[in-house]
Design a protein around this nucleic acid. Structure first.
Length: 293
DNA sequence: GTCCAGGGTCCCA
DNA sequence: TGGGACCCTGGA
C-alpha cells in the first residue's frame, strides 16, 4: 500500500481488493451515499469525506494526518483481503461468491455507532435504516462542515443516554427506541465496555452484547463483526438463511472458513442480495414467509 | 385504501 | 422450540 497527497486528496494505490462501491454497499455500514458521480460521501470517525476510485487508485479527501489517524485503519488497509479471499474459496459456490464480492473490506467502524445502527436494523429495510440513522445524527449529532454544507456526526452514547423515548420520536424508529436508549445508557455507564469486548482476549463478545434488550443473535453478531472487527463471527439473517438452505442443504459450519467466517459471510450476503431482486414484486415466491396472524 | 414485507427480538405455551 | 406481536414505511 502506498499513498501520497494529490491536491486536496490522498491517493491510495497498490491495495488489492479495495472496491469502494462493494465495500459501502455490502450492508455493513449506513452512512456512505453515492453522489451520482461514482464517488461516495459519508461521515465516519467524526470526519466527513468524499471517496472515489479512478484507475487502480482510491482517492479520499483530506490530508495525511486524517489518513494516518483515521482512514488507514477504517478501511483496514494493512490487511491482505486478496489472500483471505483466496483462502475462503472452499467450494464452487464460495468461489463464485468470493469472485462476486472481491474488493469488499470489513470497515473498522466506530463501535458504538455499529451497536446503535444494528439495533435499528432489526426487522427493517436498508433505506429505512439509513433514514433513521441519518435523522438520529441530524437531531443529536454534532455538525461537521464539509464542501460548503453541514454533515452530522454520530451522537455519542452519553448524549442518547440522557434522552427519553419521547425525544427519540422524530426518528420514527418504533419499538426500537427503548432499545437505543438502554444500549446508550449501558455503554455510557461502562456497564457494557465495547473497547474491552473488542480486545483479543474477549472470547465471546456476542454473548455480552446479548445482555442488552433488543439485541439477539443476529444483531450481536453483526456488532461483533462490523463494530468490534471480530472477523470469525458469522451473522445469519434472512438472506444468509436462504443461501444456507439453497446451497448447503440448511447446514453450514462456519468453522470451514477458519478465522475469516465473517468475511465469507459478507461475500455470501452480498452475492445473495445482489442476485435477488429486492422489490417485493420481483421477489422469489418461495422466499421465507412472515409469521403473522 | 389495504395488504405485505423488511438484514429481529421477546415472550409465552 | 415454535408462533405471534411489535413500530413504521413504501411499493403494489
Amino acid at each position: 500500500m502506498e499513498y501520497r497527497r494529490a491536491g486536496g486528496e490522498i491517493e491510495i494505490s497498490g491495495v488489492a481488493d479495495f472496491d469502494i462501491g462493494r465495500t459501502f454497499e455490502c450492508g455493513q455500514c449506513f452512512r456512505w451515499n453515492a453522489d451520482g458521480s461514482g464517488a461516495y460521501v459519508g461521515v465516519a470517525l467524526g470526519r466527513a469525506a468524499r471517496v472515489r476510485s479512478e484507475g487502480a487508485s482510491v482517492y479520499i479527501t483530506g490530508g495525511t494526518a486524517d489518513f494516518e489517524s483515521a482512514w488507514r485503519q477504517y478501511f483496514d488497509l494493512d490487511t491482505d483481503y486478496e489472500a483471505i479471499r483466496r483462502s475462503l474459496c472452499v467450494d464452487e459456490f464460495m468461489e463464485s461468491a468470493a469472485r462476486f464480492g472481491a474488493g469488499i473490506r470489513i470497515l473498522r467502524q466506530d463501535k458504538w455507532e455499529a451497536l446503535c445502527s444494528f439495533i435499528i436494523s432489526q426487522r427493517n429495510n436498508i433505506p429505512r435504516i439509513k433514514k433513521i440513522v441519518e435523522t438520529l445524527c441530524r437531531e443529536f449529532g454534532d455538525p461537521i462542515e464539509f464542501e460548503g454544507r453541514v454533515c452530522w456526526d454520530f451522537p455519542p452514547p452519553e448524549r442518547l443516554a440522557a434522552l427519553t423515548e419521547g425525544e427519540l420520536a422524530p426518528l420514527r424508529s418504533g419499538y426500537r427506541a427503548p432499545y437505543i436508549i438502554a444500549a446508550a445508557r449501558a455503554v455510557a455507564s461502562g456497564e457494557v465496555d465495547l473497547e474491552m469486548l473488542a480486545g483479543e482476549d474477549c472470547a465471546d463478545a456476542p454473548r455480552a452484547l446479548k445482555a442488552l434488550p433488543g439485541v439477539g443473535d443476529k444483531v450481536a453478531n453483526c456488532v461483533a463483526l462490523f463494530g468490534l472487527h471480530k472477523l470469525d463471527v458469522f451473522p445469519i439473517d434472512t438472506w444468509m438463511k436462504k443461501v444456507i438452505d439453497s446451497r448447503y442443504g440448511g447446514k453450514l459450519d462456519p468453522a470451514v472458513f477458519g478465522g475469516y467466517a465473517g468475511i465469507a459471510q459478507q461475500y455470501m450476503f452480498f452475492h445473495a442480495r445482489s442476485a435477488t431482486p429486492r422489490r417485493r414484486s420481483e421477489s422469489p415466491k418461495n422466499g421465507p414467509q412472515p409469521r403473522r396472524a
